[in-house]
Structure formats: C-alpha cells, structure tokens
Computed example of a mutant assay.
Amino acid sequence: MIVAFASSTGEKIDQHFGWSKEFYLYRINKESAEFLKTINAETDLEDEHEKLNYKIDAIGEADIMYCTQIGPKASQMVQSAGIHPVRVAEGEDLKGSIDNILEMLNTQPPMWLLRAFHKAQQKSA
C-alpha cells in the first residue's frame, strides 16, 4: 500500500494537510517500506475547495495519508477519494510511524489499516 506523509523535511510529520507543501510517499507491505518520491503540492489557489482538490489529486495514489491536522471538510473529501487520513502529534518521527505501521501489519492491525491494506492489494492485482 502507498502511504503519504505531510512533512516539510521528510524526517518528521509536521504539516497540516491543507497547508502542506510536500508529501513523502512510501510503499509499505508486511516486510518492508520503500521510499517512492516526494510530491510538491504547493499551490497558490485561493479557493479552499479547489486547493483541497489539488492536494487530494497530488496524493491520489496513496491509500493512507498521515498529517498533524486536517479539517472536517478536508477529511471527508480525502476519505471520499479513497484515502484514509491519520492525524498524529506535531513532529512525530516519520521513520517511527513507518515502523509502527509495519508492526501493526504484522501483529494485530486495526480495522482501518486492514481495509487500506486489502484495498491496496486489490488495486495492484
């Protein structure tokens, strides 16, 4: 599955979804995590709805998106696009979050993670 992290550095999750200028994408399975690319999602769009759609399109291949904050409208839009939003504490270690996903996948994954994992497997089949 593909996970997007809203980060200004690629080291910490430190961005609000709607204001994030970059997302770091990783392919994560039960065995490993592989960095795919950095997505530049900077935009000068003023309209909130257009800006959110632009961000969602930018991370459209993701199954899960980690950020520090996301508004209710944006969360609903992200979920409608088939991406599961996850809020974490400001400055959470990106590598630590990846390790946590790997651990959850290999022990007792929560239902939201199982859904995202199985959906990703069906997309790639």
Rank of each mutant, 00 (worst) to 15 (best):
Q69D: 06
M1Q: 11
G71D: 00
Y26F: 11
Y26R: 04
K37I: 14
D47H: 13
Q79V: 05
E103R: 07
N53T: 07
F23T: 06
W19I: 02
Q79W: 05
T107E: 14
E11A: 08
V78H: 00
R115Y: 08
G60L: 04
A125P: 00
A4V: 09
I2D: 01
D47M: 11
T107S: 15
E46R: 07
S7A: 07
D14R: 15
T68D: 08
H49Y: 14
A6C: 07
E48N: 11
K55A: 13
E34I: 12
S32L: 08
A58I: 10
G60E: 05
I83Q: 15
T68K: 07
Q122I: 05
T38M: 09
M1K: 09
K55D: 11
S124Q: 14
A62Q: 09
L105S: 02
R115Q: 13
I28G: 04
S75D: 12
A81Y: 06
W19S: 08
A6M: 03
Q121R: 03
E48H: 11
R27M: 04
L52R: 09
Q15L: 15
E42W: 13
W112V: 06
D63V: 11
S75L: 11
M65Q: 02
H84N: 12
M104A: 13
Q122D: 08
I83H: 15
K37G: 14
I39Y: 10
P85D: 05
G10E: 10
E50P: 13
E48R: 09
G60A: 04
F117W: 14
N53M: 12
A120Q: 12
Y26V: 00
P85M: 05
L36W: 15
E50H: 15
S124P: 03
A120L: 09
D57Q: 12
E31L: 13
L36A: 04
E103M: 13
K119R: 15
K55H: 10
G18V: 00
L105N: 03
N106K: 04
N100W: 11
K21N: 01
I28W: 02
K51Y: 11
I2Y: 09
E61G: 01
D99H: 03
Q108T: 06
Q122A: 12
T9D: 15
E34V: 04
K55T: 10
P109N: 10
A6V: 05
D63N: 14
H118L: 12
I98V: 01
Y66L: 00
N29E: 05
A41E: 12
L113P: 03
P110N: 06
S32Q: 11
K30P: 05
E42Y: 03
A125D: 07
D99Y: 06
H49I: 08
I56E: 03
Q15M: 14
K119H: 13
P85L: 04
L45M: 15
N100I: 01
A116R: 10
P110C: 04
A116H: 00
I101K: 00
E11V: 09
D47S: 14
P72V: 01
K73M: 09
K55G: 08
G96R: 14
K37N: 13
C67W: 07
F23H: 09
F17V: 02
A125Q: 08
N106L: 03
T43A: 01
E92G: 10
S7M: 06
L36F: 12
